[in-house]
């Protein structure tokens, strides 16, 4: 059974793959390919956010008796990332790949600095605090309706 850190970091890597595929299509001026990969990317990101917001963060908040700590900042950053994804989506609706690439660069750094915080700090702490229920938590994330 993987740790919480391994399970959620693997989701980050899947999202990265979709991101890279969409960006490559945009560079190749392949609007259709870019739209398809972007949709997969956005869906994977949304799924990952829900795993955290609906399962991991509440458990962490309960264990630390606080909703004002690191999870508050992480939820805030999720909102920023969702806004940036919406900007990318509207660039694609307008068939503006130049705009899309500029937004994509911004989103990548925003997302990766967020992922670094989670993978370096938050997930290892979750494993320390919630390690004995890691299996149950991962199951709960997998059981979330699509």
């Amino acid at each position: 059974m993987p740790s919480i850190a391994e399970f959620l970091a693997a989701e980050h890597r899947q999202c990265d793959d979709h991101f890279a595929a969409a960006e490559e299509s945009a560079h190749a001026a392949d609007l259709t390919g870019c739209r398809i990969h972007f949709q997969q990317f956005q869906a994977a990101m949304e799924r990952h956010f829900r795993n955290e917001e609906d399962v991991l963060f509440p458990a962490f908040e309960q264990a630390t008796s606080s909703t004002m700590g690191p999870t508050r900042v992480m939820r805030l950053e999720h909102r920023q990332i969702r806004d940036a994804l919406a900007d990318m989506s509207s660039a694609l609706t307008g068939s503006d790949l130049e705009e899309y690439l500029g937004q994509a660069e911004t989103l990548l750094i925003l997302t990766q600095q967020h992922n670094i915080k989670e993978e370096q700090i938050l997930y290892p702490m979750c494993d320390q605090m919630l390690g004995n229920t890691a299996g149950l938590m991962i199951q709960a994330m997998q059981d979330l309706p699509a």
Binding site: T64, S65, G69, P70, V73, L76, M125
Partner: peptide
């Protein structure tokens, strides 16, 4: 308990 010094603030 949140560990001392932890700040994921921006």
């Amino acid at each position: 308990m949140i560990p001392v010094g932890l700040s994921l603030e921006q």
